[in-house]
Design a protein around this nucleic acid. Structure first.
Lengths: 261, 261
DNA sequence: CGCAGATTTGAATGCAATCAACACTGGTGG
DNA sequence: CCACCAGTGTTGATTGCATTCAAATCTGCG
């Protein structure tokens, strides 16, 4: 249960997370390196921030996977976002005092807390970093929009394919994907709560994707067998992730499968 | 087709729009008053910003109603947001260069364009205004999240009730609602495209709301007959709109109908 | 008046939810 | 070491909410 102010390991994640969408100078990277991080491990299923909380710090994900969700009166859980290392899932709390949803861990994870005050200072002193943070919340918003579109207009099969594409591309962008797939250590129940489908129907749709030889998904690793096919199945266009050109073109050109980078 | 730099009429809308969620000083209001606005009328159905555009200005809505939407390959239109006077629907373009959706007018409207450069300057020189703008995009994002929840977990009837509540409260917050309802000059087709329902089923759900004596909706005016009932039908909790305390408590306490303020 | 867009109604179909079991996995404790 | 259990994944059967297809009515407007 280490809870010291660690001046090192998490900063790389933070910087990579921001650099996938924004340009940073050396000086700015150094400023970020100096941010105080309080590292903590969280257990699977643990709630990191509660609905209605008024946090005074943000949570940077270092390792593992988090989700943002809301429990409805009927007892159902609605997942509104998945988060991967490098993300700051509750960055919005910087300017929206009250949490309108909860943040929790889907698997054992490591997070780092950054005081609001520190982030606000940095954002004010270094407008470019401020812009990057703002931009980061805007990409988050763009992902929400895409989910709205998916839930409103796409059938189950396509919805799931789209989500797989999204997670794959996001992970590639921070360099934590493998050449042939990525870790997706969530349950089908989680997937269903995120796509608005029952677990049963989620299961059947995943099987369809397997049957179409687009993916394999075992022991938490999702292997992409046919990237072009999966993209097509999901109607996926990465524009909305607003990655920097380089990352984006890389993934466009990538052809089907094969264990080559 | 007036297209002069009008230094006056739109600024009130802008200020009211920001003040529903943020505190502004007199000095800051004056700074906002000095922003250059280019006012324009747009026709019903007109596209103001196109998908894939890279705008160099933002669009402030003065009168009317706009929507953000995306046309899918299958030919369907997915509406991801409705906008009312005081909103800046494409504020995200300030930091996300490429539009990942379109912006259009649902009814004849008046908008004012503000150059990105001007907004960025103001945001940098006046951190509190910058925070208010950022905050504004965060509320937009929170609304998206709520739509995700609705589309993923709520049945048609509830979804529509929830949307009606949301629009009512947002309009109250900028002072353009009537005591007994508000202008909602959209078609049921629009409503369906926003709630992920067919027009037929949208129609039937609206009729249910009417049958339950919760609303009336004629000639573009939605009369709220039973606010508490409507709130309950939609499972509506306004927390996610992040209004300033005052506005929020006002609406909580308001009881059923009646033409008293 | 006649037309286009919007609303409404009816009937048939279908996607996805629900209900109900069963299989598989990993972890725990006897 | 194995029995047991909880969580997860899978399959089958049934139900139902919402879609689609089709057509009639209503409304505003040129």
């Amino acid at each position: 249960m280490s809870d010291p102010i660690t001046p090192f390991p998490g900063h790389d994640r933070l910087i990579r997370g921001l650099e996938r969408i924004a340009e940073l100078s050396d000086a700015e990277r150094e400023v970020l390196q100096a941010l105080p991080l309080r590292v903590r491990s969280v257990a699977k299923g643990e709630e990191i921030v509660r609905e209605n909380d008024r946090p005074d710090r943000c949570c940077l994900l270092l390792d593992g996977m988090l989700h943002r969700y809301k429990l409805l009166p009927e007892g159902t859980r609605s997942i509104v976002a998945f988060h991967i290392p490098g993300d700051i899932p509750d960055l919005q709390s910087l300017h929206l005092a009250t949490m309108d949803h909860a943040l929790g861990a889907l698997v054992p994870s490591r997070v780092a807390f950054i005081p609001h005050a520190a982030l606000l200072d940095v954002a004010r002193e270094h407008p470019n970093i401020g812009a990057a943070l703002w931009r980061s919340t805007l990409v988050d918003s763009a992902i929400h929009r895409q989910w709205v579109i998916g839930l409103g207009a796409r059938p189950a099969y396509q919805r799931i394919a789209h989500l797989f594409c999204e997670m794959y591309v996001r992970m590639k962008a921070v360099g934590i994907a493998e050449p042939d797939g990525f870790m997706l250590p969530i349950t089908q129940t989680d997937l269903g709560d995120a796509t608005g489908l029952s677990t049963v129907h989620t299961n059947r749709s995943v099987q369809e994707l397997r049957g179409a030889k687009l993916i394999r998904w075992e022991r938490g690793f999702l292997r992409v067998l046919d990237w072009q096919g999966l993209r097509q199945a999901g109607g996926f266009d990465p524009t909305y992730l607003h990655l920097k050109r380089a990352d984006e073109s890389e993934l466009r050109s990538q052809s089907r499968a094969g264990p080559h980078g």
